[in-house]
């Protein structure tokens, strides 16, 4: 797999046009790693001069901050900013809406200002510019796909249309859930919930959301976030529909249709 590190490029006296921030889920979670690989495949197919930080990358601090541990967040943030500024990084793309939000909105307060793009927007731009060419009559033509809004893309950053435009490029039949865009229901993982059991209640949030997604009759649930991926996949399994309905990231859908 061609995934140069920024250090590799620096050794050759080069800098990447864009840094791909992989994130912890994209680096360690087996399911999310497949999304990382799919996205790298697209970057290579398009011929973009990109690089990753490799082992120099560290957690943005998002879950620590949202769980209330501001010290830990700022330690992580400042270390990351030192690394990014050290390599004079200007532009960052990431497949994780949580990393995206933190680096874009919160790092500037601590001295790290970059152009940060989520991969949904990045893919949409590549499609619009004609740089990504999808197969005629691809695997998803006419298939029902529903898109689950990530809170950290949607409400947190007002990105609602880019992921939908990416899906439309697949010629798929995009069906919406009742709760979508500004009223999209959370998968249940945000705010550091990913790292603990839910509080006592009647139901798990991801099951509620999976039921709604399954109710559309879609055979693919598209997501744009590694945490949504985990939650929706578990929700679909809970309803014993994993054989018929697949949860996939935008990057995987595009990579499969190249």
């Amino acid at each position: 797999m061609n995934a140069p590190t920024v250090a590799d490029l620096a050794a050759k006296g080069e800098t990447p046009d864009v840094l791909f921030w992989v994130g912890c889920a994209g680096s360690f979670d087996d399911r999310a790693k497949r999304v990382t690989v799919a996205f790298v495949k697209i970057l290579n197919a398009v011929g973009i001069k990109f690089a990753v930080l490799g082992t120099e990358e560290a957690c943005t601090g998002d879950p620590a901050r949202r769980a209330g541990n501001e010290f830990l967040f700022q330690m992580q943030a400042m270390n990351n900013i030192q690394v990014l500024n050290g390599y004079s990084i200007k532009k960052i793309v990431t497949a994780c809406p949580h990393c995206f939000n933190t680096i874009k909105n919160e790092y500037p307060d601590l001295g790290g200002t970059y152009e940060v793009i989520h991969h949904a927007t990045f893919l949409q731009q590549l499609i619009n510019d004609g740089k990504i060419k999808l197969k005629e009559g691809g695997a998803f033509k006419g298939k029902k796909i529903t898109y689950h809004d990530s809170c950290y893309l949607g409400r947190a950053n007002n990105i609602y249309e880019a992921p939908r435009e990416v899906l439309q490029a697949l010629d798929a039949d995009l069906v919406e859930m009742k709760r979508c865009r500004t009223t999209g229901l959370c998968c249940g993982a945000g705010g550091a919930q990913m790292f603990k059991e839910p509080e006592k209640g009647k139901k798990d949030i991801n099951v509620e959301r999976a039921e709604e997604a399954l109710g559309t009759g879609a055979t693919t649930i598209a997501v744009a976030c590694p945490f949504c991926m985990t939650m929706m996949t578990d929700g679909v399994k809970n309803k014993e529909k994993e054989a018929e309905v697949k949860v996939k990231d935008l990057a995987e859908l595009i990579a499969e249709s190249l």
């Binding site: 360690f28 879950p63 992580q76």
Partner: peptide, 28 residues
């Protein structure tokens, strides 16, 4: 579990207990 997550971030720079040296293994 949040305290455990804090500790993981402090020691392994990720919310899960993985070795930071394995962070780039996906490329293999």
């Amino acid at each position: 579990s949040w305290n455990a997550m804090f500790q993981n971030i402090e020691t392994s720079f990720a919310p899960w207990k993985f070795s930071p040296a394995d962070r780039f293994n996906w490329s293999k």
